[in-house]
Write a protein that binds this DNA or RNA. Structure first.
Length: 139
DNA sequence: ATTCTAACA
DNA sequence: TGTTAGAA
Protein backbone atom coordinates (compact mmCIF):
# COMPACT_ATOMS: atom_id res chain seq x y z
CA UNK A 1 0.00 0.00 0.00
CA UNK A 2 1.28 3.48 -0.85
CA UNK A 3 2.21 5.89 1.87
CA UNK A 4 -0.31 8.26 0.37
CA UNK A 5 -3.17 5.82 0.78
CA UNK A 6 -2.10 4.95 4.28
CA UNK A 7 -2.13 8.55 5.44
CA UNK A 8 -5.63 8.99 4.07
CA UNK A 9 -7.20 6.10 5.91
CA UNK A 10 -9.90 7.01 8.40
CA UNK A 11 -8.67 5.34 11.59
CA UNK A 12 -9.03 7.59 14.60
CA UNK A 13 -12.11 8.40 16.68
CA UNK A 14 -12.31 11.90 18.12
CA UNK A 15 -10.87 10.89 21.46
CA UNK A 16 -7.57 9.85 19.88
CA UNK A 17 -7.49 13.01 17.79
CA UNK A 18 -7.94 15.08 20.92
CA UNK A 19 -4.82 13.56 22.43
CA UNK A 20 -2.87 13.86 19.20
CA UNK A 21 -3.72 17.52 18.67
CA UNK A 22 -4.54 18.72 22.17
CA UNK A 23 -7.63 20.41 20.75
CA UNK A 24 -10.98 20.03 22.52
CA UNK A 25 -13.68 17.83 20.99
CA UNK A 26 -15.73 21.02 20.79
CA UNK A 27 -13.10 22.69 18.63
CA UNK A 28 -12.62 19.68 16.40
CA UNK A 29 -16.37 19.44 15.75
CA UNK A 30 -16.59 23.17 15.21
CA UNK A 31 -13.83 23.15 12.61
CA UNK A 32 -15.72 20.40 10.84
CA UNK A 33 -18.85 22.55 10.80
CA UNK A 34 -16.76 25.30 9.25
CA UNK A 35 -15.72 22.94 6.48
CA UNK A 36 -12.07 22.85 7.48
CA UNK A 37 -12.13 19.06 7.78
CA UNK A 38 -14.47 16.31 6.63
CA UNK A 39 -14.02 13.19 8.72
CA UNK A 40 -16.08 10.21 7.57
CA UNK A 41 -18.76 8.64 9.78
CA UNK A 42 -19.05 5.07 10.95
CA UNK A 43 -22.35 3.23 10.76
CA UNK A 44 -22.89 4.40 14.31
CA UNK A 45 -22.42 8.02 13.21
CA UNK A 46 -19.09 8.41 14.93
CA UNK A 47 -16.37 10.45 13.26
CA UNK A 48 -13.17 8.81 12.04
CA UNK A 49 -10.10 10.87 11.14
CA UNK A 50 -6.95 10.14 9.14
CA UNK A 51 -3.34 11.15 9.68
CA UNK A 52 -3.95 13.88 7.12
CA UNK A 53 -6.84 15.18 9.18
CA UNK A 54 -4.63 15.23 12.25
CA UNK A 55 -1.94 17.14 10.37
CA UNK A 56 -4.54 19.54 9.09
CA UNK A 57 -5.89 20.11 12.58
CA UNK A 58 -2.37 20.83 13.80
CA UNK A 59 -2.00 23.38 11.01
CA UNK A 60 -5.33 24.92 11.95
CA UNK A 61 -4.21 25.09 15.54
CA UNK A 62 -1.04 26.85 14.49
CA UNK A 63 -2.91 29.39 12.41
CA UNK A 64 -5.39 30.04 15.20
CA UNK A 65 -2.48 30.80 17.51
CA UNK A 66 -1.23 33.22 14.90
CA UNK A 67 -4.49 35.08 15.16
CA UNK A 68 -6.26 33.99 11.97
CA UNK A 69 -10.02 33.55 11.90
CA UNK A 70 -11.91 30.78 10.12
CA UNK A 71 -12.03 32.72 6.87
CA UNK A 72 -8.32 33.30 6.95
CA UNK A 73 -7.61 29.65 7.62
CA UNK A 74 -9.82 28.59 4.74
CA UNK A 75 -7.70 30.74 2.46
CA UNK A 76 -4.41 29.56 3.89
CA UNK A 77 -5.25 25.88 3.65
CA UNK A 78 -6.54 24.05 0.62
CA UNK A 79 -10.02 22.54 0.47
CA UNK A 80 -10.84 19.80 2.95
CA UNK A 81 -10.87 16.25 1.68
CA UNK A 82 -12.58 13.19 3.09
CA UNK A 83 -10.36 10.40 4.37
CA UNK A 84 -10.73 6.93 2.86
CA UNK A 85 -13.01 4.46 4.57
CA UNK A 86 -11.03 1.31 5.31
CA UNK A 87 -14.08 -0.60 4.12
CA UNK A 88 -13.45 0.73 0.64
CA UNK A 89 -9.99 -0.79 0.39
CA UNK A 90 -9.55 -4.04 -1.51
CA UNK A 91 -9.26 -6.70 1.15
CA UNK A 92 -5.74 -7.47 -0.04
CA UNK A 93 -4.65 -4.08 1.28
CA UNK A 94 -6.78 -4.02 4.36
CA UNK A 95 -4.37 -4.71 7.19
CA UNK A 96 -5.62 -6.22 10.42
CA UNK A 97 -4.92 -3.22 12.63
CA UNK A 98 -6.39 -0.80 10.14
CA UNK A 99 -9.61 -2.70 9.95
CA UNK A 100 -10.22 -2.45 13.65
CA UNK A 101 -12.45 0.42 14.61
CA UNK A 102 -11.21 -0.06 18.16
CA UNK A 103 -7.52 0.73 18.25
CA UNK A 104 -5.64 -0.31 21.35
CA UNK A 105 -2.98 1.95 22.81
CA UNK A 106 -0.40 -0.45 21.45
CA UNK A 107 -1.90 -0.28 17.96
CA UNK A 108 -1.92 3.49 18.11
CA UNK A 109 1.66 3.60 19.26
CA UNK A 110 2.63 1.35 16.39
CA UNK A 111 0.81 3.51 13.86
CA UNK A 112 2.40 6.67 15.20
CA UNK A 113 5.81 5.07 14.99
CA UNK A 114 5.25 4.14 11.36
CA UNK A 115 4.01 7.61 10.51
CA UNK A 116 6.98 9.17 12.25
CA UNK A 117 9.42 7.02 10.30
CA UNK A 118 7.52 7.64 7.09
CA UNK A 119 7.81 11.36 7.65
CA UNK A 120 11.53 11.18 8.28
CA UNK A 121 11.89 9.51 4.90
CA UNK A 122 9.51 11.95 3.29
CA UNK A 123 11.24 15.23 2.39
CA UNK A 124 7.99 17.11 2.72
CA UNK A 125 7.99 20.85 2.32
CA UNK A 126 5.55 21.97 5.09
CA UNK A 127 8.32 21.18 7.59
CA UNK A 128 6.36 18.40 9.22
CA UNK A 129 4.32 20.14 11.85
CA UNK A 130 3.10 16.81 13.06
CA UNK A 131 6.61 15.60 13.77
CA UNK A 132 7.15 17.49 16.98
CA UNK A 133 3.63 16.72 18.10
CA UNK A 134 3.87 12.99 17.48
CA UNK A 135 7.31 12.77 19.01
CA UNK A 136 5.61 13.77 22.23
CA UNK A 137 4.29 10.21 22.46
CA UNK A 138 7.70 8.65 22.49
CA UNK A 139 9.19 10.05 25.65
C1' DA B 1 -16.92 3.71 28.31
C1' DT B 2 -17.17 6.93 24.14
C1' DT B 3 -19.17 9.92 21.11
C1' DC B 4 -23.12 12.63 19.14
C1' DT B 5 -26.28 16.70 18.89
C1' DA B 6 -28.27 20.69 20.68
C1' DA B 7 -28.51 24.30 23.71
C1' DC B 8 -27.11 27.96 27.29
C1' DA B 9 -28.16 29.39 34.74
C1' DT C 1 -15.12 27.92 23.60
C1' DG C 2 -16.71 25.49 27.75
C1' DT C 3 -20.03 22.64 29.60
C1' DT C 4 -23.89 19.77 30.14
C1' DA C 5 -28.11 16.92 29.28
C1' DG C 6 -30.02 13.04 27.02
C1' DA C 7 -29.57 9.62 23.45
C1' DA C 8 -26.96 6.14 20.60
Amino acid sequence: MSDDVRRNLALFPIGIVQKLTELSARQIRYYEQQGLIQPIRTKGNQRLFSFRDVERLLEIKKLIDQGLNIAGIKKALGPAEKPTDVEDLPKEERLAVEGNRNLTDRDLHELLKKELIAQLERPGRPASLIQGELSRFFR
